[in-house]
Design a binder for these strands. Structure first.
Length: 570
RNA sequence: CGGGGCGUAGCGCAGCUUGGUAGCGCACUUGUCUGGGGGACAAGGGGUCGCAGGUUCAAAUCCUGUCGUCCCGACCA
């Protein structure tokens, strides 16, 4: 391709509304343009990258035995009502009516549609297992779209769905897809982790997320320093701490703590570590009840864990100030478990605390020297409700947990019969009886992968594409070609030779100065660059520069094709 | 949804306080010079100042409404 026929649309100025590196670079390099909040057009250069992600994804799906289909983005409400998600999904579901006033939505995902398709098309257990996939546009009316295509309202997703007669078969396909996903991200040369995940609104029991590691990631993930344990922090288990509770050494005392509300306030006011403070959170329970959650002061509540406990409202909701005053006789900031009459759920680490500080349920007062058994009963219900922190023991007993940020680019689930049962999707089994199928579902955010790849691979000059993602493999940059007929002839010849060799080359035949050309090629992240000049023509050499290298290399002109081929295959 | 910021040329911004008919940089067009790291000079083209009302002789500027967009928050015990 020639730059005179393939406009680059690069911009020097960083757009004002782009926060993170990948968003800024996607605009500056001319990959995307914003249409409206969370809606982006893909320019030719960006689309080439998007297509590469699709291509690699398709190849691995085909290898995994999945069959490509294409389902409508516009979906009738009836199917969503069958599974109950028409009500459950909330405002994120983009709903609309047709001219006959019938309800539709723009699909945020396709479980309902594929399940409908499967129940009509699959009749016999002999057709199972089977996996369908598609690459298609999804719509989610996000609360707050941001970071360009990272969290947008319309995006490209590869979604796959598998159907099975039994759990063993589901597990087998799940494992195959897990491997296929690992292959995809390896081919894309991205640093990633597969982590145990919460299945969220999609549902089901077992699930893994695939995260591209990047500091700007919206998710926190935890993984063991020595084993392969890795989990989303939402799901990472905080194990019961080792050791036993210390003996009581201090006397119980009621102390004045005027205007000291947060754990931070109290620990600095009393000059004690936060780990000696007890944090009491009042949350809504079931049927208008309230529940107290106890945490060690230096720990934070994990909402996802808490709302899964019976008796706690889901989604988790904190009690209002009026409710707190009603059950605690004090405002938030002085709440404690002593004398509290509502149900109490304590985090595992709480029961090992001794001589601790907690609110006294009187405004401006706390107790210190508090000890379980002596001053108040040990809570009956002890659960894992806190977020893990760096250095916690790994739940598999091997090593400690490290925390990192990740961008969720893939998510696989074992759905079980959640959708197939609701929609009565069954086949005739070996015994001639109808049997509900088990399902798995597997998604990759294709457009998000592009952003995540940039997030992980860029420098102050621009994007540094991994080989398999680059819009072009090689940039051909002649210096002042318009001034030299022989250089022009040599450049044209090399361009043709590169094309003939099957190398995807971008020939910069614009009449621009060298610096301008180099800056553009570096901004758009072409991995390999060939510089042609009159100097080299005299010596029979061309210059090669890798996107990541500081120095150029001189290569004999006759060897350049072989040299590049070696680079591209290596 | 709550709070805040911002809407002026394709992009980045100034002008608004104190109303008087719109400007700068980049980009774009043409020309000359330059020619290995986003060049210089010159001449150009491009904006009903988000939209709708209102105040005024006069509104980018003041007032009201509205739409768009971005950021923050939803962990306070």
């Amino acid at each position: 391709m020639r730059t005179t026929q393939f406009p680059l649309n690069t911009v020097k100025e960083t757009p004002a509304d782009a926060e993170i590196a990948s968003h800024q670079l996607m605009i500056r390099a001319g990959l995307i343009r914003k249409l409206a909040a969370g809606l982006y057009s893909w320019l030719p250069l960006g689309l080439r990258v998007l297509r590469k992600v699709e291509k690699i994804t398709r190849e691995e799906m085909e290898k995994a035995g999945a069959l490509e289909v294409l389902m409508p983005a516009l979906q009738p409400a009836e199917l969503w009502q069958e599974t109950g998600r028409w009500e459950q999904y909330g405002p994120e579901l983009a709903r609309l009516k047709d001219r006959h006033d019938r309800d539709f939505c723009l699909g945020p995902t396709h479980e309902e549609i594929i399940t409908d398709l499967a129940r009509n098309e699959l009749k016999s257990y002999k057709q199972l297992p089977i996996t369908y996939y598609q690459v298609q546009t999804k719509f989610r009316d996000e609360i707050r779209p941001r970071f360009g295509v990272m969290r947008s309202r319309e995006f490209i997703m590869k979604d796959a769905y598998s159907f099975h007669l039994n759990q063993d078969s589901l597990q087998l396909t799940y494992d195959v897809m897990y491997q296929a996903y690992s292959n995809i991200f390896n081919h894309l040369a991205l640093k990633f982790r597969a982590v145990i995940a919460d299945s969220g609104s999609i549902g089901g029991a077992i699930s893994h997320e695939f995260h591209v590691l990047a500091d700007s990631g919206e998710d926190a993930i935890a993984f063991s320093t020595v084993s392969d344990y890795a989990a989303n922090v939402e799901k990472a288990e905080a194990v019961m701490p080792a050791g036993t509770r210390g003996a009581a050494t201090a006397d119980l005392a009621l102390i004045d703590t005027p205007d000291q509300h947060s754990i931070e306030d109290i620990s600095s006011f009393l000059n004690i570590p936060a780990s000696l403070c007890l944090k009491t959170l009042i949350v809504k329970g079931e049927e208008d009840s309230l529940v107290a959650l106890l945490l060690r002061g230096d720990h934070e509540l994990n909402k996802i864990k808490a709302e899964k406990i019976d008796g706690v409202a889901s989604p988790l909701e904190f009690a209002g100030e009026e409710d707190v005053i009603r059950v605690c006789n004090c405002k938030p900031g002085s709440i404690g478990p002593i004398g509290l009459t509502i149900h109490i759920i304590a985090d595992r680490s709480v029961v090992l605390m001794s001589d601790f500080v907690c609110g006294a349920n009187q405004d401006g007062k706390h107790y210190q020297g508090v000890n379980w058994e002596r001053d108040l009963p040990v809570p009956v219900q002890i659960e894992d409700i806190r977020a893990v922190v760096e250095g916690d023991a790994s739940p598999d007993g091997l090593g400690k947990l490290t925390l990192a940020r990740g961008i969720e680019v893939g998510h696989i689930f074992q759905l079980g019969t959640k959708y197939s049962a609701a929609m009565k999707a069954g086949v005739i089994n070996e015994g001639g009886k109808n049997q509900i199928m088990l399902m798995g579902c597997y998604g990759i955010g294709i457009s998000r992968v592009v952003a995540a790849a940039i997030e992980q691979n860029h420098d102050n000059k621009g994007i540094i594409w991994p080989a398999n993602l680059a819009p072009f493999q090689v940039a051909l940059c002649p210096m002042n070609m318009h001034k030299s007929e022989r250089l022009k002839a040599a450049a044209e010849q090399l361009y043709q030779d590169l094309l003939a060799a099957g190398i995807d080359v971008l020939f910069d035949d614009r009449k621009v100065r060298a610096g301008f050309m180099f800056s553009d090629m570096e901004l758009i992240g072409i991995p390999h660059c060939i510089v042609l000049g009159d100097r080299g023509l005299d010596t029979g050499t061309v210059e090669y520069k890798s996107r990541t290298a500081q120095e150029n290399e001189e290569i004999p002109a006759a060897d350049i094709i072989a040299f590049l081929k070696a680079k591209l295959n290596g």
